[in-house]
């Protein structure tokens, strides 16, 4: 096995679960998240020589994934609508079915993406403010403001009595 192949396999095994989860919270769809992960990893393989340091791998992969997600919207808008399936049971029911049942899950999905993304990076991926700022190409203050507002909105919606509490940010 070549050195590049070894590096790639290590990368895939270490980061695929995090990439998939991040992709899901980015696009709200498990099937699209899976496609995004596959596209991201293939692009990473083609550009593996760009990755110089192991500690930069997570941010590098997230940046690729965000670009792949953006490319989705660049493709020609495809008009599509669901059609009635009659009484037949769909043999491949959407994987999204039954997922968004939990209130907190729904509240996270309803959070504006600007606030949700840094929260996912911080809580799920364990990234620091500086690392988040690098991937999102924002300054640290903006990242902190978005973290503040994201948490404040979630807390307010979970505890309406605390809604007016944070008056800064």
């Amino acid at each position: 096995m070549s050195h590049a192949q070894q590096r790639y396999e290590a990368l895939v095994r270490a980061y695929t679960p995090d990439l998939y989860r991040y992709a899901y919270w980015l696009c709200h769809s498990k099937s699209i998240a899976e496609d995004l992960v596959q596209d991201t990893l293939l692009r990473a393989w083609k550009n593996l020589s760009q990755l110089q340091e192991a500690k930069a791998a997570k941010a590098w992969l997230l940046t690729i994934l965000r670009h792949e997600n953006a490319r989705r919207f660049e493709r020609k808008q495809f008009e599509y609508s669901d059609v009635e399936q009659d009484s037949l049971e769909d043999p491949h029911q959407s994987p999204e079915h039954g997922v968004a049942t939990d209130r907190l899950h729904r509240l996270i999905l309803e959070l504006p993406q600007d606030y949700r993304e840094p929260l996912v990076m911080q809580l799920l991926l364990g990234m620091t403010g500086d690392e988040i700022a690098t991937v999102l190409q924002l300054n640290l203050n903006t990242v902190n403001t978005r973290l503040f507002r994201g948490r404040a909105q979630l807390r307010a919606r979970l505890q309406p009595e605390a809604a007016g509490e944070p008056a800064h940010g």
């Binding site: 695929t16 989860r21 899976e34 996912v120």
Partner: peptide
């Protein structure tokens, strides 16, 4: 807990 959704088997 909510963010750590289940990862499809065999994805890797």
């Amino acid at each position: 807990q909510q963010l750590a959704i289940e990862v499809p088997p065999q994805l890797v």
